[in-house]
Design a protein around this nucleic acid. Structure first.
Lengths: 383, 383
DNA sequence: CTGTTAGCGCTTTCAT
DNA sequence: ATGAAAGCGCTAACAG
């Protein structure tokens, strides 16, 4: 039998019968291959190899920029690949190299602008290193997060970036990555239980300076709409709040600290509750911008003036916060930088051996941006 | 030679030498396999097969829920798979079935809330059908869009959802999908040149009713900050604007229609220009919400009252638009529904043969939401 | 019901 | 510099 793929045998007999027979066979094979290619709708290395009368391996080498290929061959292959619009089948490539060049990102949501921005930063950094990103959202649900992790695992991502859902208290689904040697990096909502790299901002300092600022503007009863206790960021920000009060010898009033589980709709209840207190607060430090914004709407509806009757400060510097009336004072997080840093940490780990993984924690700077929702008109800077 | 994988040969000789030899060989093989597995950090079908003394195919069948497997075998396999935390290698699965169960989405950006919401809708619909989503953003750049398309192609997505960048005028990079038999569905920013399914909203009607509303509130000089001419949505919305003016016999004033290429920062120039006109407009219909919001900030800075001096209407009902002061009148798009409908159309195509693809265009409803930025205080509804 | 075999498209030794 | 062959992990067609 003649070789299906590869060189045409050099010693073709010129004997007519032989040649006809040979030709016929080749014709059939050719047609079969053609049909197959059409059916696949894909150009493969074999198609190029057949056309150029080369072996698969040579074509592969030419395509991957292997040094030991003659210039003529390389150029011919590249030209034909271009012409035929050949795209390397990443699936097969992945199977062989057991690399997918893909980074998975699991975020709790991307409705507010925080996570989309982080993702953009991550995507840009990943693209530079030749990696793709696949994103999935846990919807703040533990179950979904576990499912997402399974999908990432099945898709054999080369690494994952995770920001935990508010429900997550068990981390087995994430420890699997470690066990399988897939690097994992936490960002924003991190996990103390796992010894892996993390990217956070100095939530404590941010919260501290926010509350300090409120105190300095003369506020005496500062309320805090805190985040769910499960999240470290909630606790950090709460601590910043408490320590600022302590530093300035303000009493810590239990009824002014309300833990909030981030469920939409509950802000209204809490703010109304705060406003109905015998001694209502004169300022509010909210766990994040969406919460602060929602609170502002309610406060304004009540006819209270912001910041005079009630100052408000948020956290993150969401897209909408500068657009409010008054604009929202907030602690800005370097969102894109969080994404790119997380990817960087991931790439670092992928380069080195499992044994050399280091659980560095990179803390980025969160900075207070003072805007109208907390700046008393009296102390406004002169024009 | 003994079979590496599969049953242990039944007729093992009890002859000591033979047995020792056999055992030794198996030991070496076993250790090799073990090392390989450890190195791979992955549990494969072979690991399960070896452990349970079954063939690969049986394990595969048990795992995939094939009917012709004994209950005992299935349970044993499933139990071990669970215990070993086996995850099917999707890469290999994809290679064999030439399906990736992945849908690619190319969007121009996801900074504003429109595309994230569409993606959420798409992701939910896709998840229901067992598909994953991979998202990439073109950044409003044609070059990047082409690169993104190539990535999707190389990753062998089963289908793509595309919303064009503002720069895209050539569609060769997307026609490749068609040629390869990969279904493609456009949404929001569609392309007339390609005969494929599309999901749009009735931009014309939305724009028409927005402008009609402005006219009915007594506005006489309505400006339009139009989108780039390359986008069909821009033209549709412009036409709605024009026809509304015509219907009410208002003159069409060239200087009040400004095409805007969506570049950040330019809104300020245009709005200032409009306000500096000899006869400045008394209302503004903006191509989308971010533009309208930016315009509102500038108008307010100038000390003009909204809507009395200048009414503003946007398009899309972004997250921030309800939070403005005054809140922004806008034409709401069913964002999640756009995403889920697009996925639905894609799945429909994947089911049928290429020959039976139909280029349906699904038009969803865009509805005017009247808010403070256009509601004259005089005509405000009684409390 | 179960085992054997042959690929999916690609890379990578090992020959030549 | 090039070709042949093995194999990545899985599924599916074909035999028992």
């Amino acid at each position: 039998m003649f070789p299906l793929i590869g060189n045409v045998p050099k010693n073709i007999k010129t004997n007519q019968v032989d040649f006809c027979c040979l030709f016929e066979k080749y014709l059939i094979i050719y047609q079969q291959l053609l049909t197959a290619a059409l059916k696949r709708h894909q150009i493969t290395i074999i198609d190029i190899a057949r056309e150029l009368n080369l072996s698969k391996s040579t074509v592969s080498r030419a395509l991957t920029g292997h040094p030991k290929v003659s210039t003529a061959t390389r150029e011919a292959v590249l030209a034909l690949a271009e012409k035929l619009d050949y795209q390397r089948n990443m699936i097969a490539f992945n199977l062989v190299t057991s690399k997918t060049l893909t980074i998975g990102i699991i975020v709790p949501e991307f409705v507010t602008s925080f996570f989309p921005q982080v993702i953009i930063g991550a995507q840009e950094a990943a693209a530079k290193a030749g990696y793709n990103i696949i994103v999935s959202q846990s919807n703040e649900s533990y179950e979904t997060e576990v499912a997402n992790a399974k999908v990432m695992l099945a898709n054999r991502v080369d690494g994952v970036l995770v920001s935990l859902s508010k429900e997550t208290r068990n981390f087995d689904h994430l420890k699997i990555f470690q066990r399988k040697g897939i690097p994992i990096v936490f960002f924003n909502r991190v996990c103390d239980e796992m010894q892996v790299p993390k990217v956070v901002v100095n939530d404590y300092d941010g919260a501290f300076s926010a509350v300090e600022h409120l105190i300095q503007t003369g506020k005496k009863r500062i309320a805090h709409l805190a985040g769910p206790d499960s999240l470290i960021i909630s606790r950090q920000r709460l601590n910043g709040y408490l320590d600022a009060l302590r530093k300035y010898n303000q009493p810590i009033v239990e009824e002014l600290i309300i833990p909030y589980d981030l469920t939409t709709g509950k802000v209204k209840i809490y703010v109304n509750h705060l406003l109905a207190l015998k001694e209502p607060p004169d300022a509010l430090f909210a766990i994040n911008d969406p919460t602060a914004i929602e609170a502002m709407q309610i406060i304004k509806q009540k006819g209270l003036r912001i910041p005079d009757d009630m100052a408000v400060v948020g956290f993150s510097n969401d897209y909408a916060s500068a657009l409010m009336e008054p604009s929202l004072t907030t602690v800005a997080q370097p969102m894109r930088e969080i994404g790119s840093t997380a990817v960087q940490l991931l790439l670092d780990q992928m380069d080195r051996d499992v044994a050399n993984w280091k659980a560095v924690t990179r803390t980025l700077k969160a900075e207070l941006i003072i805007r109208g929702s907390s700046r008393p008109l009296a102390t406004a800077p002169p024009v």
